[in-house]
Amino acid sequence: MGPLQWGDVPTAVGALFAGGAAWFALQTIKSQRQQIGEQRQFIGDQLRFMAEQQQNLALERAELRAAAEDRRWSQARKVEVSHVRAASTVNDQGEALVDHWLVIVANRSDSPVHQVDVRFGTAYTAHEVHEWNPQRSHPTYEPGERVVAPVDLVGPGRAVRFASQRWSSATVHNNRPTVYFTDDSGVRWSKDWYGKRDEVPTAEPPTPS
Rank of each mutant, 00 (worst) to 15 (best):
F120M: 03
A106K: 04
T182R: 15
R136P: 00
R65P: 01
G44T: 09
Y180I: 12
F162Q: 08
T140H: 03
G19H: 04
L64P: 01
W23T: 01
Q39S: 10
A15D: 12
V118N: 07
R108D: 11
D198S: 12
F162C: 09
E204S: 14
R161P: 02
V147P: 01
L57A: 15
R85E: 08
A159V: 07
R161T: 05
L26G: 15
E95G: 01
A86L: 11
P112V: 08
V118C: 10
R146A: 12
E63W: 06
V172L: 08
K78G: 05
L47H: 06
A66L: 14
G2K: 00
P139F: 02
N174G: 11
V172P: 02
S185I: 12
S168K: 06
A15I: 04
K196A: 10
R119K: 08
E204M: 13
T125F: 00
D70S: 15
A67W: 02
V200E: 15
L16I: 00
W23Y: 13
R108P: 04
E145P: 00
W6S: 06
P3K: 15
E80T: 00
A67S: 11
M1A: 09
T178W: 00
P208I: 12
T171H: 11
Q46W: 10
A21L: 14
E145V: 08
P150R: 01
E69N: 09
R40T: 13
V116G: 03
F24K: 02
